[in-house]
């Protein structure tokens, strides 16, 4: 099956435009669920640029949500006289910049680790950032930071942030697609398959890994800045969350690890399951996530897309001998 190269981005933009109609037709509760879905999908794709494409599954990406959000908040509060739009632009620039600096500094040593050791070391990085943020008074982590309201007075903030997340998520998705089809993306996939062989064949693995890490971190940080504005008030605990660290892996695992659309499918599904189907059963969330994880690892390690691919292969195998 051959696709024209422009089809995928057109599909992404079309899907985003359809989703953008959501707030006009959906009741407010579902707009909130939609917000969480789109935000999670954006994060999942940003995570997957490193975790899915290159196979470096980070267990500490909440570090970048937190660093981005706090950097933006600290600077925005110094310039609170600016117009809301400018303020958001400033916040995004500062938050993204902080994540770029942090990730570039961490990338060199930490990307020498592989597999589970990288995952756990990233968890360590996340906890160090969180504890420092919480305990050093300058960062105001335990006291919390207020963010100025962004939404225009004529608009419901829930709708406004839904569209903002959607725009950001679409951009992240397009960036991921650009990487996916580029030489850089092919290099990342070769790192996932066999890093040593890739290196032997002349793929600049170190440079590619570091670049993917920084891109992934910056995109995560930008989404974190928007998230902080949507919350309006953040403390350390509300941005450096271990359940975010976990969910980012589960999204990709559920949708299909190392695919372009898998993380989006996984994020939509998981948020829908936990928020809508299990919405009344808060006591049950941990158990449900754990059970899902166990079933996925044992039953469908390729996720939803893996299952679909399995069906296709089997159907083709079933029809082939008849010809």
């Amino acid at each position: 099956m051959k696709r024209s190269p422009a089809l995928v981005p057109l599909l992404i933009v079309a899907a985003a435009l359809v989703l953008a109609l959501g707030p006009f037709v959906l009741p407010p509760f579902y707009v909130r669920v939609g917000q969480l879905m789109v935000y999670s999908a954006g994060l999942a794709v940003a995570w997957a640029i490193l975790g899915g494409f290159a196979g470096y599954a980070s267990f500490g990406h909440a570090a970048f949500i937190g660093v981005g959000a706090f950097a933006a908040g600290l600077v925005e509060n110094q310039f609170s006289a600016l117009a809301p739009g400018l303020l958001l632009a400033l916040g995004l620039a500062v938050g993204g910049g902080a994540c770029a600096v942090l990730s570039a500094a961490v990338a060199y040593p930490i990307l020498r680790l592989r597999g589970t050791f990288f995952s756990i070391a990233m968890l360590g990085v996340c906890h160090v950032c969180a504890e420092v943020n919480n305990n050093v008074d300058f960062f105001q982590g335990s006291m919390g930071i207020n963010f100025p309201p962004l939404a225009p007075a004529s608009m419901d903030p829930a709708d406004f942030f839904f569209w903002l997340y959607l725009a950001a998520g679409t951009i992240v998705m397009l960036i991921a697609w650009l990487i996916w089809r580029s030489r850089f993306g092919a290099g990342l996939l070769s790192i996932r398959e066999d890093e040593d062989t890739a290196r032997m064949l002349g793929v600049p693995t170190e440079r590619y890994k570091r670049l993917a890490f920084v891109i992934s971190a910056v995109l995560t940080g930008l989404l974190g800045v928007i998230y902080a504005h949507a919350l309006g008030y953040i403390t350390t605990d509300s941005v450096y969350r271990d359940d975010t660290n976990l969910n980012l892996i589960v999204f990709s695992l559920l949708g299909g690890m190392g695919t372009l659309f898998g993380p989006v499918i996984g994020a939509f599904l998981l948020v829908f399951i936990t928020q809508v189907i299990l919405g009344r059963l808060l006591d049950f969330h941990l158990f449900a996530t754990g059970l899902l994880l166990v079933l996925l690892v044992l039953g469908a390690p390729g996720g939803v897309l893996g299952v679909v691919r399995g069906w296709r292969v089997r159907r083709r195998a079933a029809t082939a001998p008849a010809e």
Binding site: G290, V294, V297
Partner: peptide
């Protein structure tokens, strides 16, 4: 449980034990 994931990727067995940990933690609560 774990025997079924031992020979897969190390990430798989790690996530399996994490899933079990979440379930048991919930039961303990």
């Amino acid at each position: 449980l774990i025997q079924r994931a031992v020979d897969r990727s190390p990430l798989g067995s790690m996530l399996l034990t994490f899933g079990v940990a979440l379930m048991l933690q919930n039961i303990m609560i």
